[in-house]
Amino acid sequence: MEVRFRLNGEDRSVDVGPAQSLLSLLRDGLGLPGSKNACEQGECGSCTVVMDRQAVCSCLVLAADADGADITSVEGLGSDDALHPVQQALIDGGGVQCGFCTPGFVVAAAHLFESNPTPDTDEIREALSGNICRCTGYGGILRSLEGLAGR
């Protein structure tokens, strides 16, 4: 079935499968593999996108129900030669190891900084408590984002 939405600033009209999640549509249908599939039940945040100004798990959005939505995935946040400040901060601060959780952290953190450019440590920790990282122990991510917040 056909669904129309705005994705990374571009109007799209796409064919979605029955029972297809927005995550699957992005990855398998639209060739945007930046959003990661790690749990498919909203318990890891690796697939986080911003939809209608809310950070949500794209695995829990029925693609057919995304009709009319305004969606930003990690691909819409920065590119190799023009990184988003959150992306640069994570690289500089040692917030990246295996990197599988990283796009989800990038989107969730960018969303946080949009509403609160100077979050304190506990605000960062709670706002990102839905994003699981298995490699870093969160230390590198925290230092990266504290730096970005000017702390």
């Binding site: 990855r27 945007l32 593999p33 930046g34 959003s35 990661k36 599939n37 995935s73 990690v74 691909e75 946040l77 920065g78 590119s79 190799d80 990184l83 992306q87 640069q88 994570l90 690289i91 500089d92 040692g94 990246v96 990197g99 599988f100 990283t102 796009p103 990038v106």
Partner: peptide, 21 residues
């Protein structure tokens, strides 16, 4: 030195190719 990872940029942009990608 704390040299930056060569895979850092593709990992933060989502362009790094994991097997599942």
């Amino acid at each position: 030195e704390s040299v930056q990872r060569p895979d850092g940029v593709p990992k933060v942009t989502g362009n790094f190719a994991y097997v599942s990608d």
